[in-house]
Write a protein that binds this DNA or RNA. Structure first.
Lengths: 340, 340
DNA sequence: CTGAAAGCGCTTACAG
DNA sequence: CTGAAAGCGCTTACAG
């Protein structure tokens, strides 16, 4: 009836008389009428909800995902969309679950740092729009939001070099992940530009989880003489940096007096270490917010609305060096690598 | 048709012949049939989704809420429920929004640390079941999950006293919040038992946000002579403790050599400070998981199912002292308060 | 054991 | 400007 129009407000403005309008409103108020979201969703084919999918490490969301989520929440609440959060343990094993969630309970999905095989990606349902953030590989028909990681890595290593460091270690993320590889590239490029030879023994593989990095660094410290210590460590993310700082503290090494440390991401954790961490800021919240905006236009288009916006397959955000207290000039007597 | 029964599986087991059953399944597979969640929800009056509501500080979820959320996510995914996350800025101003979310899009709501006035609480819709965690005041008809905060505060202060501290500062949470007050009580009680007179000047009001605590402690350090320094600080949560540790680091004070610090909650942040933080563990994940279990039985009951479980209004979880590296015996020459 | 029918609570052409 | 009707895609008595 007309009730629907009136109650949905602005939409059909003028076509109802003041009187019936008031009558409807009065009745609604008296009956404590509350529209039902599921019925509305069924009729509209629109749940006004967006889904967010992230993998859990050790049972919890990491700081990186949290930052992105924060941006997503802000943007979707601005657009009066609910956001439902789905977690999985392993992108490979859990695609089936992911597919199952695309049953109309959400209008679209944001995938945070998915690592999907080509086949898995191809099996994603076509009736649900997707946006990914930092996808490990390009997903067909999915717009991917990423940041200029290689450049960030380059800049932070360049910065260390400018501060006088030459013997710079890199503790990298999970081997095989694009994000990890891009940081290694940036690291190598900065060394090359400064004509510092790349030393394989200073490029230590680890994972993006802080716990692993702590162990990795502990082992390294046990297995190497004090003289082998680098002047600075470029860690592939803030969690790794924190893990390394813990290992250094245990070994009696002071940051930054004995060794400089830099991270990547600029998550909340980067500001609660002591000293605060020099890092490369990825605008994760903005990226999360943008994911929502993009997804929303994808959903409109999917609904058949004519949306003029052009959408590229990739959106690349700039990164930014954030100097804080964890970097100092190398200690006077520290061993340096001769310029080749 | 019978299709519904077959596709919903186990439910009506035997009453359909093998043959039609197979026929149905085959057709479903061939048509790529996917049940629609909103239609199902409308018919069942059950969305299989639970809502979580938390307030934002400075635009993001704090570590406390994160831990709870993690527990909620684990439990709801175990029960094959989605969880949608709602954020608000102010419990007082946003009750209207909260009410609006109770429109069938979720089957029940978990409120994380709500601070609702009596009136606001009374205005919560009766058609949606609620569970609260650490509610600031008892909510009518809402089961509240909390922990033994007073006892936790008592135990950690007692521990500091056992370690030889007598001049113990407390940096408290937001004045007026029950959680903050309970910690103050425990602090006072432990002092009283040890016959240490309560010194108002050592009970510093702050807020549960780490940033504020950092400022609070900075100001305190500037306004007080070094001799006035306490031997130990009991902080009302881990974020406050981290903020204080930062202020101490800036002032050149070493933890725990110059001053001991303890926190409360045992969030992830407690393990990434250097030194790691001695704290009082609240089993936040378990509490979040329990909230889901309780809410689910509330929902069943609401649906008219006979659920035998008795549900108390309050569920109180025990807390546990977690000694780590941020506490040492007080420095030899430090000023102590004479026993009265 | 199976199928036709009504209903969940909305929205939206469509005919007056 | 307004109201009666059909439809969104399921589930569940109910009659065969």
């Amino acid at each position: 009836m007309a009730a629907s129009k009136v109650l949905n407000g602005a939409r059909s403005s003028s076509r109802i008389s003041e009187e019936t309008r008031d009558r409807i409103l009065a009745a609604a108020a008296q009956l404590h009428y509350r529209p039902n979201a599921t019925a509305r969703a069924l009729a509209n084919r629109r749940m006004n909800t967006i889904g967010v999918v992230a993998a859990l490490n050790d049972g919890d969301l990491n700081n990186y995902a949290m930052e992105v989520l924060t941006g997503v929440l802000a943007a979707s609440s601005k657009h009066e969309q609910s956001t439902t959060l789905f977690t999985l343990h392993d992108w490979g094993a859990d695609v089936t679950r992911l597919r199952g969630w695309c049953d109309g309970r959400v209008d679209g999905m944001i995938l945070i740092a998915p690592t999907l095989t080509h086949d898995a990606a191809a099996s994603l349902p076509r009736h649900t729009p997707f946006v990914s953030l930092h996808s490990n590989s390009p997903l067909p028909d999915v717009v991917n939001i990423e940041s200029n990681e290689e450049r960030g890595a380059y800049e932070v290593v360049e910065y260390l070099i400018e501060e006088g460091h030459r013997r710079i270690m890199h503790v990298s993320g999970d081997p095989g992940l694009t994000g990890a590889e891009r940081r290694v590239s940036g690291y190598k490029r900065a060394l090359a530009v400064a004509q510092i030879p790349f030393d394989e023994k200073l490029c230590i593989p680890s994972t993006f989880a802080g716990k692993d990095a702590r162990k990795t660094m502990r082992n390294w410290l046990e297995g190497n003489a004090r003289g082998a210590l680098p002047q600075a460590v470029f860690c592939a993310n803030d969690a790794i940096a924190t893990g390394c700082m813990e290992a250094f503290a245990e070994a009696g090494l002071r940051v930054p007096e004995d060794i400089s440390v830099v991270g990547f991401d600029d998550t909340l954790g980067a500001r609660t270490t002591i000293p605060q961490l020099t890092t490369v800021r990825q605008p994760l919240r903005e990226m999360g917010a943008r994911a929502v905006e993009v997804l929303l236009t994808l959903i409109q288009r999917h609904d058949g609305e004519e949306v003029p916006t052009e959408l590229p397959n990739r959106i690349v955000f700039p990164v930014e060096l954030v100097p804080r207290a964890s970097v100092a000039r190398p200690p006077a007597g520290s061993r340096t690598v001769p310029i080749v």
